[in-house]
Design a binder for these strands. Sequence first.
RNA 1: GGAGAGGUGGCCGAGUCGGCUGAAGGCAACGGUUUGCUAAACCGUCGUAGGGGUAACACCUUACCCAGGGUUCGAAUCCCUGCCUCUCCGCCA
Length: 425
Amino acid sequence: MLDIRFVRENMPIVREAMRNRRADESILEGIEKLEAERRRLIAETDELRNRRNTLSKEVGKRKAAGESGEALMAEVRGFGEKLSALESELADVETKVRDVLLMVPNIPHESVPVGADENDNVEIRRWGAPRDFSFEPKNHWDIGESLGILDFERAVKIAGARFALYKGLGARLERSILNFMLDVHTGEHGYTEIFPPIMVNSASMTGTGQLPKFREDLFKIENSDYFLIPTAEVPVTNIHRDEILDEKDLPVCYTAYTPCFRAEAGSHGKDTRGLIRQHQFNKVELVKFTTPESSCEEHEKLTANAEVILQRLGLPYRVIVLCTGDMGFSSAKTYDIEVWLPGQGRYREISSCSNFGDYQARRAGIRYRPEGKKKNELVHTLNGSGLAVGRTLVAILENYQQEDGSVIIPDALRSYMGTDRIAAG
RNA sequence: GGAGAGGUGGCCGAGUCGGCUGAAGGCAACGGUUUGCUAAACCGUCGUAGGGGUAACACCUUACCCAGGGUUCGAAUCCCUGCCUCUCCGCCA
């Protein structure tokens, strides 16, 4: 959420940001009047309350002095109605202002390229070279099924479309990948491991920005206020909701493995086969809380931390910066890491690393005490996948497939797998 | 699931029969004095948010003692509902 004061004083900037994002500017209609009204009502109610409080104290004094406060009491009695009318009017206006603010996306960082859609994203760098195949590379679902390590048909029977069943070395590969990732991030990159609840309440979903705007993307548990998390970002960022952190503890860096659940509303027909787009998938997430001064630097580091995983696994990838039109709602700047998939002959997203600035922190009330200053300030929050586990498995199957149908296990995973190859039979 | 107890500032903890309590006291923290250094002692500061105000401070004011309602001239203090925590019993992994 943006600061109402910032919005009020910088309307042109806000409007331009929304235009650049292809967001619907019309929700800003009337916000200035509402905000002026809000402040007018605050002044009015405060004034009335002040008079009431003063007179009520006077009643107390008179009673203590043995006099009757009846006359005053009668006078103040009349305040009640006026006051509650004003209060409900104010509450109403405040809700309206807040509702608008919750629908306004973050302002893109100045370094973000302006663009309409994914075609305007800008590639920053590439690592590794796609391998030359002496045969026609297969896609991962064919590889997985013929090796007997992925079973999509039975997953449909058990749950439905967009679910997968991993079996034998397939299940083990998934587990190996996520353990490897966690070991690298905790052991080498200094992140603290978290294993959070994977169902959260609506306050947490609002804190990180999934609610109210993206409800249809979430799975909701019936007869409760619980939602299945779409990413560990939600529970992990909300660890410090409504807290004030010490500057000396910053940056706070967490990594968490969790299953993630997404309704994938509006993506009918996209990636219907294979593991790319599932209702349930595993992800290792990286989350940071930093000072405003260091958030850009920490963003680069976080992205680099995710890249290391691909490098260790020998998977070619590229990093792109999302343009204004393709960025997520709460993000100020996002790098996507895309891994090369020979089966598809193109790069596919495997990680998305975002700097949210103070946008989530304001919603979620996450602040810190700057050393030497009196005033608390909002932290900056960042997160990124480090990485999506299922898609990493896809990339390994496709990049390391052999002509005989077997798959070589990358060196980094062999100790986890207990084998160097997955072969049929 | 049954029966009790409770939710106060960064932490601990007091708040009498509702008024002068934004909240005693302690700890921690910060600034200072003292000290050969450390420790100790002493003095002071020390919640958050909104609005007004200021060049910026100062300052004024409102709200907040789990949340939401209610009673009252006036509520941390009384009543109701919800959420959460703890203890005991039962049950289950």
